[in-house]
Amino acid sequence: MASILRVDDINVYYGSIHAIKGISFEVNEGEIVTLIGANGAGKSTTLNTISGLLHSRTGSVTFMGETLGKVPCHKIVSKGLALVPEGRRVFLQMTVQENLEMGAYTQSSKAIDQDLEHVYELFPRLKERMKQVAGTLSGGEQQMLAMGRALMSHPKLLMLDEPSMGLAPILVEQIFEIIQNLHKAGTTILLVEQNAAAALSVADRGYVLETGKIVTSGTGKELLASPAIKKAYLGG
């Protein structure tokens, strides 16, 4: 399998705080890869670095053979890399439709209608609320909107940061179902989750982060079965 994303020994700092200490991993085309770990392990920082919101001091991020290095964040989207950020961060004062249009900011305007139809098909709830301001949506709907918005840019790699955060269990199930459907439709996915059990059960491979370092990696099944992982992340 061809590697679509390769992260090579990156070190990220917040001021003098060394948040990511030499992380390396890769995502192959067609996979779901998950990064799991506790609060503050560096999962979101890693995704933010890949998407260009943060920059690593050393090391490199290679996406589809191209080193991202100092490419500014707004140019990375058009290369086919989309991030659904932690806390969804939809534009609360804009309508659902406008949020989706923003997702298609880098796309030519001709194809937008078709893409909108596609997203509305995936998330019928969004279609019902297309004229509504995003601030009036429930948490689950906002998550769907954030995912739909990212899909509007036709990502080759979709990165999801804590998509299940703050959602009721039934919604968590729905979100994970959607992730699997997107995967079946051919999207490569890098998933960051605190809900390790759910993430590992859908993932091909996983990496475990602890205080800025990768401590274990393996296939989803292996990690689910590992006693150490069970003890630390899956509640015994």
Binding site: M102, Y105, T106
Partner: peptide
């Protein structure tokens, strides 16, 4: 307009706007 909407997006959340590909 697309530019106008991008302005509103920036006014709400610059980080998210960048993730959409908007040059803040």
């Amino acid at each position: 307009t697309k530019m106008g909407k991008a302005m509103r997006a920036c006014s709400e959340d610059k980080g998210a706007a960048q993730l959409m590909g908007i040059n803040v």
